[in-house]
């Protein structure tokens, strides 16, 4: 009899534990779902706004589904200065990408493969740049650029953006190269390659996906940057500078369409680089 009682209480206990687990699991899933919609819903609403006609955008009350009207986007594209700004943003971002990866990759390789005097100092200098609000440096540079004729040029802007992106490029590429066993290079040397050949034939093919990811990262840094762009460009505005400076004058639908255009490449690019997000940050935060 007592045995049976024990069995019953044990069963109840298991049942209770089971219920507790279920509650936890439910709580877990619903809070994850809540956080997902917290991120996605505002983006969805921006898309709804950008894909609605001007009357709907400025109308009342708003519908929560898009009418898939291209009028707003078309209006935005034809709005004075937008196309130029879009082009400028692309050019500046590509410049930034080329400069930061072009300069950062050799430095990353040096950090990964060589022991040399001053290595730690160099690494500290790289890390130090992140302890400063870098866009601020656009202020003195605006003055300097006037003196050297780089004022209001996309190249000048990309130099500032590259200063933002270069430290990341160095740290990311160095972690990439560290992830490629040095023996692979040594094997190539022994089998008849010089350093350059071994780098091109063995290291590059293996590092390429990661290098692409860090190039994309540099692109996004430039694409999104507002402050330096607004300070340094006047006639050659990038999209961010254009939107900030025409805030009060441009109609709401232009802002929303501009917002959508701004976030599209970022979202796509993040999807492309998502595999490297961690290796990038994991090491970049050491």
């Amino acid at each position: 009899m007592s045995n049976l009682n024990q069995d019953v209480s044990l069963e109840q206990e298991i049942q209770a534990a089971d219920n507790k687990n279920k509650v936890w699991k439910w709580l877990f899933i619903s809070s994850a779902a809540f956080m997902i919609s917290w991120i996605l819903f505002p983006i969805y609403l921006l898309i709804v706004s950008a894909l609605s006609s001007a009357e709907v955008v400025n109308g009342w009350p708003k519908a929560f589904v898009p009418e898939f009207d291209m009028e707003t986007l078309q209006f935005f594209m034809n709005y004075y200065g937008v196309l130029g700004a879009l082009k400028n943003s692309l050019i500046a971002a590509v410049f930034t990408m080329v400069i930061s990866i072009g300069l950062g990759t050799p430095a990353g390789y040096a950090l990964a493969r060589f022991e040399f005097r001053g290595k730690e100092t160099f690494r500290m200098m790289i890390l130090l740049t992140r302890a400063f609000p870098m866009p601020l440096l656009a202020l003195p540079l605006a003055v300097i650029f006037i003196n050297v004729g780089l004022d209001d040029t996309l190249f000048g802007l990309s130099l500032v953006h590259a200063a933002l992106a270069l430290p990341f490029a160095v740290l990311i590429t160095s972690s990439l190269f560290l992830g490629i066993p040095v023996e692979l290079e040594e094997a190539a040397w022994v089998l008849g390659c010089n350093r350059w050949q071994a780098f091109m034939k063995v290291v590059m093919p293996l590092a390429l996906p990661g290098l692409t990811a860090s190039a994309v990262f540099a692109f996004v840094i430039s694409w999104n940057e507002v402050f330096a762009a607004a300070v340094l460009t006047i006639n050659n505005q990038t999209l961010t500078a254009f939107l900030v400076q025409s805030l009060s004058s441009s109609p709401a639908e232009v802002k929303f369409a501009g917002g959508l255009i701004l976030i599209m490449p970022a979202i796509l690019f993040l999807f492309v680089v998502r595999k490297y997000l961690f290796s990038m940050w994991g090491i970049a935060n050491r």
Binding site: E183, L184, E186, A187, A188, V190, N194, V202, L206
Partner: peptide
Amino acid sequence: LPPKERNVAMVFQNYAVFPHMTVFENIAFG
């Protein structure tokens, strides 16, 4: 002399088989 001029071959502890090449291309590399 650099390694490539010594006419030596080496087998590494972690094998160092190039991951982006087929076995054939690995063996043919040298």
